[in-house]
Write a protein that binds this DNA or RNA. Structure first.
Lengths: 196, 196, 196, 196
DNA sequence: CATGAATGAGACTTCATTCAT
DNA sequence: TATGAATGAAGTCTCATTCAT
């Protein structure tokens, strides 16, 4: 993944952006190397100077998007008091990022397979997953969340994020309705809350 | 969906099963017609007597799996009293079906894109979605669920099912632990419940 | 070509007619065995009881059409006095046959390659050609036609027939205008006439 | 028709020539892309850099040959006085071209269907036909040719050209016998001449 | 005799990757 | 470093022909 060698750093970005645009517009599987090169305004062969193979490029782009996604998701998390506030903040950040970066966000979603279906050796996904895990674990320890297997809570929360993301993508105006948004965010953790 | 011809009905099943096995083992996109033919013990050309094209075959198989999934999911739903019981029963049925039909279930999941990412003109998916919608609507009307946009409740519940399915696929033993299973099922609807 | 064995003679005709209809409608190369079988209302395999192969069938049909063409062309030829009258009579017969048997006639034309381009081992074509040759030879001997190589006269006359046929196919009404038709027929031999 | 790209212009010719050679030797329909590639000494895929599809290649080659044919046919036409001299000159040009370019000429003939059998949306064929039409029309107006429907004269003349071409292809030596050749050319228009 | 399901060679086309310039 | 022409493996689909029933 350490991708910066002596090659022109701008080219990495150029190619990446061309690929992202096309992946968003027509899907990853319907995009070929020639199209990416054309979109980037370079020659097909040049792509191979920057990326080992098509798979390498796709992987890189996916991880790039996921990194952005994760980074955005972490903003101000630590300012929150409770575990559920932390999680909700994280979801909120993701929803806003989805809205601001629809292309990158759609690529993350295209790749998304309920975290584990296929074993997910995907590092970034795992990273995102682990973040939730830590927060959820703390929540369980503090009695905030139900005492259910941690992996279960992770799976449930993880999929909730997909659920709310899906809805908000089609109903963007909710992002401007703080009250409603808050209620919706609440549902992503409500099911996990322990019953006092 | 049903294929009416004078061709050997067993061949349909033979080919279907070969395809399902391979799709499960290596993914839909990594499976070609020759492999399916070989797995089925027939000639490549024969497949085309039974299915118009590769796309036709894939579509058919996906819908076949989804139909099984939906049918299994409906068992005894109407015996349940509340809307949440109905939904939980539905999830439970799905979890058992996932366990009994891991291949078919994995194909449904491979195709699954958070129902709507791309608009889902997929009839069967829509059907499954609509079933939830009806139950959720009744739940809202009876004050059982929160008064949030119905589509939102649908999206959240739909993704919960993916979440719990994912977990149970990796922790099958839970299916035999009625108490724990019940608690987990509860989380799929808990977030939607109205706060009395 | 001796095609009548113990098989049902009607089937030969059934298949032949189905093929003729389809060849006429969609061209020889765009017609496959299944279509012929379907059109004939029999099974694909049955065709092979009557014809050795697709090529055999096409050949047979072509020769069948050509035989009809030739037979029709000979009517009352011997009632004519001069060689040119004989030839013109022959053309006239052909034009009427073209009109009465548009399908068979179109098949003859589809196959027609300026008699020899490819060497024409085609027996029937040769037969038709030989008929002209005999008449032309007599005409030359009687001083009616130019003293040019006989093969040349044959080639020219042969192609004239295609020319006038083409025109008449698109202007059928001429067949009812005896005066005009006669003038046109005259042009098919006029070029060959010796200049007294 | 002309193919403007940055690709190697020699390759166009290389491929074209390989195809022409094979089309001539074994017919268009019996020639596949692999054979053309092999004959041209390149890879199958390379052909597709230069021609969109097999149909595109065949079309292109046919039109290329027809263009050559037409261009050659026009040489010094306008130096002729009468319409029949013009037509005869045209035929003469064609005969010489046939002789010099037997392959290209055979391809034109393979495609040739008595101009109109199928309606001929073929641009080049139409072009050749229209050239004759103009000359024939003038001839009719000047009283040189019979007052028969112009389309009829066209059809007859057009087929004569096929007739004489066929003969000369097999009797090339006639091309060196100016006297005999002239007599033969005369027969292509003699039938159209008005009777003074 | 008749059937039509089965076969598999063969045709076209795409596209990731390489490499000479 | 950049290019893009060239490659050829791989994939889909068609269809003449065969053969068990």
């Amino acid at each position: 993944m350490a991708r910066y060698t002596s090659l022109d750093p701008n080219k990495y970005i150029l190619i990446r952006q061309a690929a992202i645009d096309l992946f968003y517009k027509q899907g990853i599987n319907n995009t070929n190397m020639q199209q990416i090169a054309t979109e980037a305004g370079i020659a097909k062969g040049t792509i191979y100077l920057y990326y080992k193979s098509r798979d390498d490029l796709v992987d890189y782009i996916f991880n790039y998007c996921l990194d952005l996604h994760i980074e955005a998701s972490m903003k101000d998390i630590d300012l929150q008091n409770s575990s559920s506030e932390k999680l909700k903040k994280r979801v909120k950040n993701i929803l806003r990022w989805n809205n601001d970066y629809p292309k990158e966000s759609s690529i993350v979603s295209e790749y998304y397979k309920p975290v584990n279906v296929v074993g997910t050796d995907n590092v970034s996904f795992t990273r995102s997953y682990e973040i939730n895990k830590i927060i959820l674990k703390q929540g369980v320890e503090k009695g905030e969340f139900k005492e259910l297997p941690l992996e279960f809570l992770c799976a449930m929360f993880f999929s909730s994020v997909e659920g709310i993301s899906t809805y908000i993508r089609r109903n963007r105006q909710v992002l401007e309705n703080e009250g409603l948004l808050e209620k919706m965010l609440e549902t992503t953790v409500a099911g996990l809350r322990s019953l006092k």
